[in-house]
Simulated scan of single mutants.
Amino acid sequence: MFAVRSGRKMLVTTGAFLAAGALITGCSSGSSDSSAQPSNASSEGNAAAGEEVVIGFSGPAADHGWLGAINSAAIAQGDSLEDVDLRVAEGTNDANLQISQVEQFINDKVDAIVLLPTDGAALTAVATKAMEAGIPVINVDREFSSPAAARTTILGDNYGMGRSAGEYICERLGDKPDAIVAEIPGVDSLPLTQERSKGFEEALKTCGLDVDNRVPADFTVAGGEAAAAQLLSAAPKIDAIWNHDDDQGHGVLAAIDSAGRDEFFMVGGAGSKNAMELIKGGDSVLEATVLYPSTQAADGVRLARLIAQNKAMSDLVEVEAPKRIVLNAPVVTSENVDQYLPTAFTS
């Protein structure tokens, strides 16, 4: 069920919020000097290898570019950490199988678990069981239904994605009150899609625009192509399109090419390498994408290590790791694309 991986390399950076530096954990016992160096600090800070910890990781089936990148980045991060023994469960979209994987981690008495649940509600009970057994759980991307199920939660900002996309379109079209804005979301029934659409709509309202045409897809290339073809057929004129997902964006762009349309610009979502290269090239209707970091599970591995070793985040004064972290959703354009390409995922 598991592949055992031990990292034996120097620490590398995957998330700016865990930058290496002097570890700050509070004053040593008996000290009245608030500036005193903590007794367990070292000049190398969190980058220095500590006691080896065993971390279990369970993620989704890699049936989507972003999800594949989530898994590979987590594994690479475990391999890079000298003091981490990362045990990787087979990726799955079966909640029952994932429950059994977590139960195995509990039986193995791992030091921490990083879990991107296929269904947050379905995995809540077993995650709570791990927490009650004294094993900290780091919940990634899809939230559990109870805060008691996780020591720390790391999320992308779905509402913020929509907000960022809408604000970018407002900057480009805010002086055109009659501009036609279209939206191609992912799976409409998912809370993450609903949050993205909500943020988008609310941002557009600030400049007097709204969503004139909206056709949902399903996060797949075929679904993106079908949705875009339907949208383009229904809307003879468009000024801007926001496509929620760069994987389905392959299909969206194919439909645009087939229709011979180029009177609009498009904003993507998630931040694939393919999308960023198109943005950098400047020869596509795609001129921006909104980041939804594929480093979330890798950040989870880094954070699980610190929690299991009773360390804090070195750039914070707080003596414990935070309970909740929401990563930023910046807009990637030709002006800043080189900054984000190194962490872009292949779609």
Rank of each mutant, 00 (worst) to 15 (best):
G78C: 10
D79L: 15
S80F: 02
S80C: 02
L81P: 03
E82F: 06
D83V: 04
V84K: 05
V84H: 03
D85Q: 14
D85E: 14
L86K: 09
V88P: 11
A89L: 08
E90F: 05
G91M: 11
N93P: 01
N93Y: 02
A95W: 04
A95Q: 03
A95T: 08
N96C: 00
N96M: 05
N96D: 13
L97V: 12
Q98S: 05
S100P: 01
S100T: 14
Q104I: 00
Q104A: 15
F105I: 10
I106D: 11
N107W: 00
N107G: 08
D108L: 11
D108A: 14
K109P: 00
K109L: 06
V110R: 07
V110C: 06
D111Y: 09
D111W: 08
A112K: 11
I113V: 15
P117D: 07
P117C: 08
T118P: 07
D119F: 00
G120I: 09
A121T: 13
A122I: 07
L123A: 12
L123S: 13
L123I: 05
L123P: 10
A125G: 12
V126E: 11
V126Q: 11
A127E: 05
T128N: 14
T128V: 04
T128M: 14
A130F: 11
A130W: 09
E132Q: 15
A133W: 06
V137I: 13
V137E: 06
V137R: 05
I138G: 10
N139P: 02
V140W: 09
D141L: 02
F144P: 07
F144C: 04
S146Q: 03
A148W: 00
A148M: 07
A148N: 15
A149D: 10
A150M: 05
A150Q: 11
R151H: 13
R151Q: 14
T152E: 05
T153M: 10
I154H: 10
L155C: 01
L155Y: 05
N158V: 01
N158S: 13
Y159A: 03
Y159G: 00
M161T: 04
G162A: 10
G162W: 02
R163G: 00
S164D: 10
S164A: 15
A165N: 08
A165C: 02
A165P: 05
E167C: 01
E167F: 01
Y168I: 03
Y168M: 03
Y168H: 14
Y168W: 13
I169Q: 08
I169S: 05
C170S: 06
E171G: 15
R172D: 04
G174K: 10
D175A: 13
D175T: 08
K176G: 00
P177D: 11
P177W: 06
P177N: 09
D178L: 02
D178W: 02
I180C: 03
V181N: 12
A182E: 01
A182G: 14
E183N: 15
E183C: 12
P185F: 02
G186N: 04
D188V: 04
D188K: 03
S189E: 13
